[in-house]
Simulated assay, not measured.
Amino acid sequence: MKVVFLLVPQLHLLDLAGPAQVFSTARDLGLDYELDYAAEQDDVPSAQGLPVRRTTGLPSLAPSDLVVVPGWRSHGFPQNGRLSVSVRTWLAAHHAAGGTCASVCSGADALGQAGLLDGRRCTTHHLLQDRLATRYPRAKVLKDVLFVIDDRVVTSAGIASGIDLALHLVATRHGPGTAAQIAREMVVYARRNGDDPQDSAMLRHRAHLSDVVHRVQDVIDARFTDRLPLRDLASTAGVSERTLTRLFGDATGLTPLRYQQLLRVERAEHLIGHGATVESAARAAGFEDARMLRRLRSRL
């Protein structure tokens, strides 16, 4: 999979570096990612004064590839960030061919210029949300969310939320265990909010400081389809079953079993959303049959 970062003059370095670090770490773990940095000029000035050099022009892309537009110093979307016709056409053509286009912070304006926000839900930095809604009245701008996904158009809020967005995309492709491993390597506590389709149990219940619980969650994330007895999880963490249950509840509000069930249901929902039958999705998520899946879906 190719991940192409579109470099716009006055881009914010963290908007670029955060998601790039996620995919770079994924590549270090052996996943097949190729990172490119595209621009119409060789050197692109950043908002922080450090110029960034492109590695490519506007490359040809496959439908499986991802384009990410970092935000830039906008002060409410003035002249900074105005895209040329060729860049707007390139973005729109990639999406029309089945590709995914994402943005961080004010980078949502680039997707708007390409016509990709019309009729879709989106978000941006909290200081720019009203301006984005005024600028693109056909878009539905959501507030108080970290990111939004609508028909392969992915928008995220302020600067650091690009990390959450990238972790979500990795989790969707490779599972929550991989995303959790990347988050731990980056020393970030993965978190997320948003509409239910984007909400992830793995990231939603990782915003705590208990290393014992993180270690147990690592095991559950990687093996959520397996049968995981409480005694084995407690042994992994080096604590008693009673202590683990107490620590896990304090950190997440859940038992280890309920956390595992949430991951299973989310995996099944993802498969069903991509055309799988309820029965096959249930088996792939670790359920013996669809009855338990249906029961948990109705509860959750």
Score class of each variant (00 low, 15 high):
3 V>R: 02
107 G>V: 05
281 A>G: 03
170 V>H: 04
158 G>R: 07
255 T>A: 09
287 F>V: 10
111 L>T: 13
212 V>M: 03
137 P>N: 13
132 L>I: 10
293 L>M: 09
62 A>H: 07
147 F>K: 07
116 L>P: 10
137 P>W: 14
34 E>M: 01
168 H>E: 09
261 Q>I: 14
111 L>P: 07
49 G>F: 03
294 R>H: 09
42 D>K: 11
18 G>D: 00
252 T>C: 06
227 R>H: 10
114 A>Y: 03
132 L>G: 08
284 A>M: 06
283 R>T: 11
148 V>W: 06
195 D>I: 11
45 P>C: 02
286 G>V: 13
204 R>D: 03
1 M>L: 12
135 R>N: 12
7 L>M: 10
33 Y>L: 02
15 D>N: 02
88 R>M: 14
297 R>N: 02
180 A>T: 10
157 A>D: 08
137 P>Y: 09
4 V>P: 00
143 K>S: 13
179 A>I: 05
215 R>H: 09
253 G>M: 12
293 L>I: 08
29 L>G: 02
209 L>H: 14
282 A>V: 06
260 Q>S: 00
292 M>C: 01
228 L>S: 10
275 G>A: 00
136 Y>E: 03
208 H>G: 12
94 H>A: 10
180 A>S: 12
287 F>M: 05
93 A>W: 01
42 D>I: 05
204 R>G: 14
221 D>Y: 02
114 A>N: 02
122 C>W: 11
130 D>I: 01
241 E>P: 06
219 V>E: 15
225 T>F: 02
61 L>R: 04
51 P>C: 12
246 R>V: 11
257 L>F: 14
45 P>D: 01
117 L>S: 13
50 L>S: 12
217 Q>G: 00
37 Y>N: 01
261 Q>F: 05
140 K>Q: 14
103 S>R: 06
126 H>C: 05
184 R>L: 08
20 A>E: 05
12 H>N: 12
140 K>T: 14
272 I>S: 01
196 D>R: 08
75 H>M: 13
146 L>V: 01
120 R>G: 03
126 H>M: 10
231 R>H: 10
118 D>H: 15
243 T>V: 13
300 L>M: 15
66 L>F: 05
155 T>V: 07
127 L>Y: 10
300 L>R: 12
112 G>S: 05
2 K>E: 09
149 I>M: 11
211 D>A: 14
17 A>P: 00
164 D>P: 04
63 P>F: 11
287 F>T: 04
7 L>W: 04
91 L>Q: 11
209 L>N: 10
179 A>Y: 04
127 L>T: 14
192 R>N: 15
146 L>C: 07
268 A>R: 07
48 Q>R: 08
24 S>A: 12
82 R>Y: 09
33 Y>I: 02
248 F>G: 00
116 L>E: 09
24 S>K: 03
130 D>L: 09
5 F>P: 03
205 H>F: 15
50 L>W: 13
186 M>N: 08
104 V>P: 06
143 K>R: 15
41 Q>C: 07
259 Y>M: 09
197 P>V: 03
264 R>H: 04
227 R>M: 04
272 I>L: 10
279 E>Y: 04
200 S>K: 02
115 G>Y: 09
89 T>G: 07
91 L>D: 08
291 R>Y: 08
33 Y>E: 07
259 Y>E: 05
244 L>V: 00
271 L>G: 01
298 S>G: 04
139 A>Q: 06
159 I>Q: 01
